[in-house]
Design a protein around this nucleic acid. Sequence first.
DNA 1: GTAACTGCAAAATATTTGCATCCTT
DNA 2: AAGGATGCAAATATTTTGCAGTTAC
Lengths: 137, 137
Amino acid sequence: MRKEPEILKQSGLSITESRTKILELFYKNDGALAHADIEKKTAAAFDRVTVYRTLQTFVEKGIIHQIPTTDNSVLYALCKHNCAQGHHHDDHVHFICNNCEKTICLDDVTVPEVKLPKGFKKKQSAMVVTGVCGDCK
Amino acid sequence: MRKEPEILKQSGLSITESRTKILELFYKNDGALAHADIEKKTAAAFDRVTVYRTLQTFVEKGIIHQIPTTDNSVLYALCKHNCAQGHHHDDHVHFICNNCEKTICLDDVTVPEVKLPKGFKKKQSAMVVTGVCGDCK
DNA sequence: GTAACTGCAAAATATTTGCATCCTT
DNA sequence: AAGGATGCAAATATTTTGCAGTTAC
């Protein structure tokens, strides 16, 4: 069985064309994708609403995760480290290249721990680094 | 002279009511503010467009900075460490409380350095921690 | 066959732009 | 007085919701 349907099945989702194709996009793409990217890359083959709902479902099932950004957009990327539903290991650093505009998951770079002030309790942490990536330097 | 007009003057901006009031809001508020918060807290005294333009201007002048979030919203907070235009020292960790929903600048917690893969060059980095804050624990 | 998924329409929300008027300096 | 800032109108973009028809299992 191909990779994409297999993942959908494991997550308890029905295997549909839109889900398979969108998931495939994430595998083919090395960086993160925004909603608008997906519309472009699928040539609007699916309804805009379907794309919204698919992304939302994928996040809920832990197939992809959201990446924080400072402009008001949301970027999505694959969860590489076997994220199970409710057990995200989305603990790697994200890199946004100012040159090629790609957002890359640095899967091998773990978000370092920080010492929080008294009384604060950490649940999750995320880190975004901007600069120039390996391809653009 | 009051604090707010003084800051506007230093940044080379004309001192207007909307700018003074919005800046005052940031000083009175301990957490970060979203565009919608500002509209609410000013009781829509200013045009929505003015708020957009004011926030944009403040970011450009280094008076406030944007905080990365995973939902598609932008949060703004004061730059505490004398950010000059183009010389941001927005290097502190941001904390989002899952209980009171406030976003707090941990001015004393610096974003730690991370070792990037070969060829990557860092320009800026941001870190967001979620959990429970000191007031809610 | 049934539950889940999709597409369409439409509503709600958010953001941007142009321009005339007003305010700060 | 002049340039910048604001408000209004309107265009544009983004996201959400309801529902009927379709598809996966």
